[in-house]
């Protein structure tokens, strides 16, 4: 078994440009990186540097124009299917749009259970949210009736039902209050110690990256810079 859980080899993504005289702009340019089991890798860069595009290619949401993503040494076809699809998950920055506004939390949380062919019983759903300080009455609410902090905790609970090995955290705490930020960061750290899950932590905050990540890769204008903290 490879000691690298997720690897990017020469990932490149171009988008159509609206600027005159320029057909395409390169959002990510030949990015290569590797993620080891149980580590937290920080992708640090300014807004528009291409870190989110790179992250979304790593989780199989955007098809790269060039390069490949490898999971445990195996090249993944796009879109990801089967076990890699289950084991590589994402948590977004905006909790208020991380849930279908038409569904209750119960309905949204039942989805990963169904996908894993498990019964979404009251006990299972309650246990799933209880460790994030949410209660059974939250299950019957729609996203509009929950706070940002509650939604982000519920989003994390939903992701963890899949028992992922890699979670891409795309600025997961930037929209939250300080207390909820600390709760989520603390929970993620404990969960990593318990399960050996790997994180890719996307942020523009150097201090947060240094606090959370074991290794930091800086992203600038779509390119990865060799700046690592060990």
């Amino acid at each position: 078994m490879s000691d690298v859980i997720l690897e990017a080899r020469g990932l490149t993504k171009r988008f159509r440009s609206r600027e005159e005289g320029r057909r395409y702009f390169t959002a990510v340019d030949g990015a290569s990186l590797s993620l080891h089991p149980g580590e937290t890798l920080g992708l640090l860069g300014e807004s528009g540097s291409g870190k989110s595009t790179l992250g979304q290619m790593l989780v199989g949401l955007i098809r790269p124009d060039e390069g490949s993503v490898l999971y445990r040494g195996e090249t993944l076809p796009f879109p990801f299917r089967g076990l890699p699809r289950q084991k590589i998950q994402i948590l977004f920055q905006h909790p208020e749009v991380s849930f279908n506004p038409q569904l209750t939390l119960r309905q949204s949380l039942s989805e990963p259970f169904r996908l894993r062919k498990q019964l979404a019983t009251d006990e299972a759903l309650t246990a799933c949210i209880a460790r994030f300080g949410l209660y059974p009455e939250h299950l019957e609410r729609r996203p509009s009736a929950l706070s940002g902090g509650e939604l982000q905790r519920a989003a994390l609970a939903r992701v963890l039902v899949m028992e992922p090995e890699v979670i891409l955290l795309d600025e997961p705490t930037s929209m939250l209050d300080v207390i909820t930020q600390a709760q989520i960061v603390d929970f993620l750290r404990r969960y990593q110690e318990e399960t050996g899950t790997s994180y890719i932590f996307i942020t523009h905050s150097t201090s947060l990256a240094e606090q959370v990540c074991r290794r930091i890769v800086r992203v600038k204008e779509g390119k990865l810079l060799d700046s690592e903290k060990e």
């Binding site: 949401l61 998950q89 905006h94 991380s98 989805e111």
Partner: peptide, 26 residues
């Protein structure tokens, strides 16, 4: 383009389910 649709995709929800359960009702 909204995160909840991207999350459904990363969960592995099938395209018809995404379209009829998550896009159409909205």
């Amino acid at each position: 383009q909204l995160p909840y649709i991207k999350i459904e995709k990363t969960l592995g929800v099938k395209t018809p389910v995404i379209l009829f359960r998550h896009v159409l009702p909205n």
